[in-house]
Design a protein around this nucleic acid. Sequence first.
DNA 1: TGCCAAGCGGACCAGCAGTCCGTATCATGC
DNA 2: GCATGATACGGACTGCTGGTCCGCTTGGCA
Lengths: 195, 195
Amino acid sequence: MAVVREERADAARNRKAILEAADELFATSDSPGEVSMDDIARAAGVGKGTLFRRFGDRANLIRQVYAVRLAPLREQIQSGPPPLGPDTPPRTRVAAIIDAIAVVKLDNAHLMLALEEGGGPTSGIYGSADYVGVHGLLRDLVATELGVGRAGWVAHVLLATVRADLLRHVTEGEGMSHSALRSSLRDFVDDTLDH
Amino acid sequence: MAVVREERADAARNRKAILEAADELFATSDSPGEVSMDDIARAAGVGKGTLFRRFGDRANLIRQVYAVRLAPLREQIQSGPPPLGPDTPPRTRVAAIIDAIAVVKLDNAHLMLALEEGGGPTSGIYGSADYVGVHGLLRDLVATELGVGRAGWVAHVLLATVRADLLRHVTEGEGMSHSALRSSLRDFVDDTLDH
DNA sequence: TGCCAAGCGGACCAGCAGTCCGTATCATGC
DNA sequence: GCATGATACGGACTGCTGGTCCGCTTGGCA
């Protein structure tokens, strides 16, 4: 077993600076597509080489920023208290998870757009570990209500319902309030699980 | 009233060649993102300037190709016989429309991906006339079943359900057959309209 | 303090969408 | 059939992108 090399201090500092700069830029830019890697490097006070050395490519950088923002939610779902944590009746938990995802995406709209737009060339969001993970969990939860046959598909539909661009269109384009949206979403989840 | 200038013969010929070449390239390429405008110009036997003169930019070219492929469906919905045409009970019609959209997207998977990926920088699919149109129609149809309050949101959800990347993931990634997918979709639409 | 793996940065590259303009072609009036 | 001006053509060109490369610097260990 090889000893895992400790990350050098300057490397760690730069990683942090890059993640923060990227988060800031994605959060403030109107369209995430127009944030370039050079912009991020400059904002982080770092050379472009460093940026690519740390993160490999743009898609991965975006995923990492996203992972930071998503960590608390993942934590809550994996081992937090009800209604998100494991100690919750399936139906309630599904509703809570969908609601929580919606909230995170509404709060981090720009970043989530960046992820869903440029997250991967061929793969898209559906290939990401995050999607697969949450889909699997929802599938299992839904299966206890509707049976395994329909669960996989229903879980996809539930997640399609909280896609960042849809949420943005409904709130910014149609002017629906966040609370009205969340309530529609809740009704929809309820109805969907009623069969 | 100014007489509308007739399109010159060579211009018309080139437009057709470009649309056909683009359709072909998007249909055969694995990832639509890797089809460049130069590729299309070359395949159409036309200079790049011509291509941009006709279509303005990439997003618009994709929309035009898409419009050609979608024309028959739009026609059917606007004035065809049941179950797609206007002379159909709302519930049946909604199901038929969603199913027909799914079929078109499954049959033209690559092109639809191109549209949804690169259809517009900020706007995305939700800004497109096609989306707005079909959403409006579905909203009205759904309203007769569920009331106007929920109709707008439900129409969005129904359409989110037939997004090209989701359909692709479920069929190619998870290996679901087209018929199984369509049947899941039909069940889902039924259930959704049952409230 | 000396050493060297690890890390750094920015010049560099290939490829992209989109522009520009000198040249060629079409349609029309005669 | 021909002259003529509007229309369209094409490909060199621009500016910018994501990503690579490599000579130089730095951090951490002995």
